[in-house]
Write a protein that binds this DNA or RNA. Structure first.
Lengths: 354, 354
DNA sequence: ACAGCCGTAGCAAGCGCTTTCTATGCGGTA
DNA sequence: TACCGCATAGAAAGCGCTTGCTACGGCTGT
């Protein structure tokens, strides 16, 4: 059978209580005793029984990180950064303390899966949960979500948002780090307008997501400020945040409005697909059509031409979220922080022809 | 306080045992009783205490997926596919049975972290563990690893490899899905040779990884078969599997051997960096230098020119690994399956100039 | 009509750990 | 020398759930 605390205690000729205390290091134990216990642990290759420990202590060392799409570096980068702060293994701190198990859960963008994962984490009595990516705007879902989060918070789970706008009137969330998607979107379109573009297509993300809406609002703000209200609707196409969608939507856009001189994509991945569609259409980037993305994922600088985009400090934000989840950093005032987005002008945007 | 099984039992006017049996559905319960219990569960918003359940049942519903780099779609795709099979939420099967919590753990390629994660999963009494990506070739580490896996297997954890060569003489691993990196590497270089290339640079991954070695061996097999033994060493540069490394290594390669007419990269991400370096060097792709990658990640088809690469069925492999981990699929004979790699010829490779 | 079953439900003994409370031995103080 | 207090270690009571076993009707078979 597997080795238990009692076995270690027997071998070290101490009581189970003492072994527990040595392992947790939260109670004075004589050095000689400690050594004896640690040797026994080593000799027997003892591994703590997590469930038993969690049950007795009423806490666990699980920390969940929820992402919409694990195959998307946008989430991967944030999750990786958060995970590295949460520690889990090798956080450099040696044996001591915060050995948390940081795990990432892939919701696939589905609200039900998100909820189910939260329940599963609640069931495990997770120490903290980090939710990344934009939220769904459906009020019903938001209400359920808020209730669920409240319950988690009640049970002592620390909740942190990363790249997601704060929940209205809820104190369940320790901190919310929100990206300035609106500002970024505005600056990006302003850049295009400054270059002289007037007919700008927009390949947007899924309708009901906050990220989509905020970026689009920024875009429209800029358009409006330039006195360009008309045709907004016909120049906007919605679709998922993936390459394929960018390709399809851009083809559609090009058919619908062949006069566009620039295409703004919901994110860099979509921009990649958009670029492919544009080239396949026989148009050059940026001579015939400018293309811009959002996020500044690692591959964007290597696109040909290099992609003009809006840089989001994903790694830094993820790391900060991780620290907040661990209580290693004090939350921003009001629990809300806005993360700035920086315009990165590269080769894929240029003045329109003519 | 939080609601317990006993509370539900009291409200449903049955014993805790009955509630447990209703929840687990592994014991006959009269329909009327079941309904009463389920209503009570609903009324009280009861959530099972995972640790307590795991302790009593001596099993947990945790499934770990270990990846080297969560920000790399190579791993993200496999992990996502595995996770979707493992179920967790929304596997379509309704309430019944296999509600597992599939979690991905990011080792960052560090052997220590890998080991620590395994310990953490062992501590949680994980139901299964999927290890993705190539293994480290260090014999000491391999031995420790084998011992650890044996212990996990002993404790009832199902272990599956995905994209990792099988462990020699170990029956701890339920199944190993190994990519045919060698064959893929060979075919890729054969393609280049057929085009007429003779001086082929190779930007390899980190030295001590099986993936790196196998791909490189395939390359050298092809070279050797063409009677091209010489200079192999001087045309090979090693580095991590990332964009930056591809860029740096290619610059180095170009300096060291300006006569190369083709560059094979360790993977697509590295190829992206390689392409950037080549262009920055004032050379055109593929007119002056051909470039090829490995993996066929989603962005590769959108590179300009589209990247010639070797397609690995990452999604299918990940999904299969997930099913194997869940015991939903019978392991291949001998527990080992080789996953074929398919050459994808695209625009980034062409005959050498002149 | 009685024994024996089957279908259900309850009892109670843990699962392996944490933690409160208690016991012990020692040095220092009066 | 007698007493007090501190530093350590042990005893034991759970934490909330699962599950083997027992109990109890009502039905069947003879």
């Amino acid at each position: 059978m597997t080795v238990t605390l009692a076995d270690v205690a027997a071998r070290a000729r101490v009581s189970p209580a003492t072994v527990s205390r040595v392992l947790n290091g939260n109670y004075p134990v004589a050095a000689s005793t400690r050594d004896r216990v640690l040797r026994a642990v080593d000799d027997l290759d003892y591994v703590l029984n997590g469930p038993a420990s969690s049950l007795a202590a009423a806490t666990s060392d699980l920390v969940g990180i929820l992402v919409n799409d694990i195959a998307d570096p946008f989430f991967g980068i944030m999750a990786g950064a958060a995970q590295s702060e949460i520690g889990g293994p090798g956080d450099g701190s040696g044996r001591a303390g915060g050995e948390k198990l940081a795990v990432v859960c892939n919701t696939g963008g589905s609200p039900e899966r998100e909820l189910t994962y939260l329940t599963l984490l609640q069931r495990q009595r997770a120490a903290a949960v980090v939710l990344t990516g934009g939220a769904l705007e459906d009020p019903a879902h938001q209400a359920v979500m808020a209730a669920k989060l409240a319950k988690l918070a009640d049970a002592g789970t620390r909740i942190v948002f990363c790249g997601r706008p704060p929940l209205p009137d809820s104190d369940a969330v320790v901190a919310a780090l929100a990206f300035d998607n609106r500002g970024g979107g505005r600056r990006l379109t302003e850049h295009l307008l400054e270059l002289g573009h007037r007919r700008i297509g927009y390949v947007a993300g899924p309708l009901e997501r906050t990220t989509t809406r905020h970026r689009l609002e920024g875009h429209r703000e800029a358009m409006k400020a330039a006195g360009l209200y008309a045709d907004e609707e016909s120049l906007t196409v919605h679709g998922p945040y993936d390459r394929r969608s960018g390709y399809d939507a851009t083809l559609e856009l090009l058919r619908r409005a062949p006069e566009v001189t620039a295409v703004v994509a919901a994110n860099d991945t979509v921009a990649l697909g958009a670029g492919a569609a544009i080239r396949e259409h026989g148009l050059r980037i940026p001579e015939d059509v400018s293309v811009a993305g959002f996020d500044d994922l690692p591959f964007s600088v290597d696109a040909v031409p290099a992609l003009t985009t809006v840089r989001l400090p994903l790694f830094e934000a993820g790391a900060r979220a991780g620290r907040l989840a661990m209580g290693k950093e004090t939350p921003p005032p009001g629990g809300i922080a806005t993360i700035e987005a920086e315009l990165m002008v590269r080769g894929s945007t240029a003045p329109p022809r003519g």
